[in-house]
Amino acid sequence: MRRIAALRKPTLAVRAAGLFARAHARPDDAQALPHLGGRLRTAHRELDGAQLRSLSHEQHRMISALARETVHLADEAGERISESILREIERTLAGLSCF
C-alpha cells in the first residue's frame, strides 16, 4: 500500500486528458485525429502542397477544438487549466495524430 501511495500523482494535463477520454468513449471520435494524421502523411509523401495546407489547417482546428473541450471538462471537474497546461494538452493531442 505504501508503494502505491509513494507513486507520483499524474500531472494536471494527464488528469484532464483522462476526463476527455472518459467523456469520448466512442471509437469513431477516438480515430478522427490519427486518421487525419494518416492523410497528412500521405499528402506529404505525394508532395501535395495544397492538400498539406488544407489538412494542416484542419489538424490545427481539430486540436484546438479538442483542447478547448478538454479545458471545459476539467473546469467542470474543478480543475483550473493554465495556459502552459493547455499547451501541454495540445502537444499531447498533436502526438495522437502521429499514429
Rank of each mutant, 00 (worst) to 15 (best):
L12S: 04
L12E: 14
L12C: 05
L12I: 12
L12P: 01
L12D: 07
A13H: 00
A13Q: 00
V14D: 15
R15G: 07
R15D: 12
R15E: 15
R15V: 14
A16H: 00
A16V: 12
A17S: 12
A17K: 00
G18N: 13
L19T: 06
L19I: 10
L19H: 04
F20Y: 12
F20M: 08
F20L: 15
F20C: 00
F20Q: 11
F20I: 01
A21T: 13
A21G: 10
A21E: 13
R22I: 13
R22T: 11
A23C: 05
A23H: 10
A23L: 06
H24T: 11
H24E: 15
H24Y: 07
H24K: 06
H24F: 05
H24C: 07
A25P: 06
A25V: 09
R26D: 15
R26Y: 04
P27H: 06
P27M: 01
P27Y: 04
P27S: 07
D28I: 09
D29T: 06
D29A: 05
A30M: 14
A30I: 09
Q31F: 03
Q31T: 12
A32C: 01
A32H: 03
A32M: 10
L33A: 07
L33M: 05
P34Y: 12
P34E: 11
P34R: 10
P34V: 04
P34N: 08
P34D: 14
H35M: 03
H35W: 03
H35C: 07
L36C: 02
L36E: 11
L36F: 04
G37I: 07
G37V: 02
G38P: 03
G38D: 13
G38K: 02
L40Q: 05
L40V: 13
L40I: 15
R41N: 10
R41F: 06
R41W: 07
T42N: 07
T42K: 07
T42H: 04
T42C: 07
T42D: 15
T42G: 05
T42Y: 03
T42Q: 13
A43I: 08
A43G: 02
A43R: 11
A43N: 08
A43C: 09
H44K: 09
H44L: 13
H44F: 06
R45M: 03
R45D: 10
R45G: 09
R45N: 08
